[in-house]
């Protein structure tokens, strides 16, 4: 499969002539490529496989061996059941889903609106706004975390899931992604819509949005992963054990005196599986979206 032939149509006018044919790949080079691919696969997937196999290992077999063994000798699902016994895992999943839904919804709404405004509307200070968005990307989140917490607390949102979701509901990176996607659309289409008397919301809703669905999917995935994986921020905002999100709640599996690696591995898998499912369901849009927004930048 080649990747060069799936360029989005918007850019078709820019491609310079017919695509070059790739030269034939020799057998040896092919082998080398596959070996390298496999090598990278092992590096990236290996730790997950190890966690997965640990979570399936029975109480009678060794976890840490000099040469890692991936196939459990006494396979069992007990560890997953024990996780559910030890912590209210469904409640934590529910909390995480709520935060993720708020974050995804917020980002789709606000990043679209902001991105469209900066890309398509003329107003004073447009460049300054864009610069500010870019500027906040440079700041690491940890620097502002205490100030953010004090702010959220003064809204009365400490120890609530809304307080966890609020600061993440519009991320600067997502605004820039949407800005880029809107900017890549031909200006002429918009102008034609103006001639036809379309208002700004109509132009956004009927003309521009349908063309950037791919980027919207990217924003949704980014927002979901960010909300689902975040650890430090929910840890700081939430105090009551029953309100914790999954990533924080899973930490109860490694207690002060005992750390059952099998349970911790099972917990990690529980947190990882939803993301894997979401990504594989949306990956078609994901790659489409990455190209759509990024090429012209």
């Amino acid at each position: 499969m080649t990747t060069t032939d799936v360029r989005p149509q918007v850019h078709a006018d820019k491609s310079d002539g017919p695509l070059k044919r790739r030269p034939e790949v020799s057998g040896r080079e092919k082998l080398l490529r596959y070996v390298l691919l496999l090598f990278v696969l092992v590096i990236t997937v290996g730790p997950f496989l190890w966690q997965l196999s640990t979570s399936l290992k029975g109480a009678g077999e060794d976890i840490y061996t000099a040469t890692p063994s991936f196939i459990p000798k006494q396979p069992t699902l007990d560890n997953y059941a024990k996780v559910a016994e030890a912590i209210p895992v469904w409640r934590y999943i529910g909390n995480s889903l709520l935060v993720a839904a708020l974050t995804v919804g917020g980002n789709i709404l606000f990043a679209t609106a902001a991105g469209y405004a900066i890309a398509r509307l003329r107003f004073r200070g447009r460049r300054v706004v864009l610069g500010l968005f870019l500027g906040t990307l440079v700041l690491p989140g940890e620097v502002t975390i205490i100030a953010q917490y004090v702010t959220v607390r003064s809204f009365g949102l400490a120890d609530t899931l809304a307080g966890v979701a609020l600061p993440g509901m519009v991320a600067a990176l997502n605004v820039l992604l949407m800005y880029n996607a809107f900017r890549a659309l031909p200006q002429e289409v918009d102008e034609a819509a103006i001639v036809d008397g379309a208002t700004v919301p109509q132009r956004l809703w009927r003309v521009s949005l349908p063309a950037v669905r791919g980027t919207l999917a990217v924003v949704a995935i980014f927002a979901f992963i960010q909300a689902w994986d975040d650890f430090l921020w929910p840890l700081i905002v939430l105090t009551s054990p029953e309100k914790l999100t999954l990533t924080v709640g899973l930490q109860y599996l490694s207690g002060t005196f005992t750390q059952d690696q099998r349970l911790i591995a099972a917990g990690t898998m529980i947190a990882f599986i939803p993301i894997a499912i979401l990504f594989s369901a949306l990956q078609r849009y994901f790659f489409k979206g990455v190209e759509e927004g990024g090429v012209k930048g």
């Binding site: 607390r153 400490a158 700081i236 105090t239 009551s240 914790l244 109860y252 207690g255 002060t256």
Partner: peptide, 21 residues
């Protein structure tokens, strides 16, 4: 009783301290 998870406890306590909670 508010039991806190093991990881990040120092950060949690500092955040509580700096916000008078």
């Amino acid at each position: 009783l508010l039991d806190q998870p093991g990881d990040g406890y120092a950060e949690k306590v500092l955040a509580q301290a700096s916000s008078n909670t």
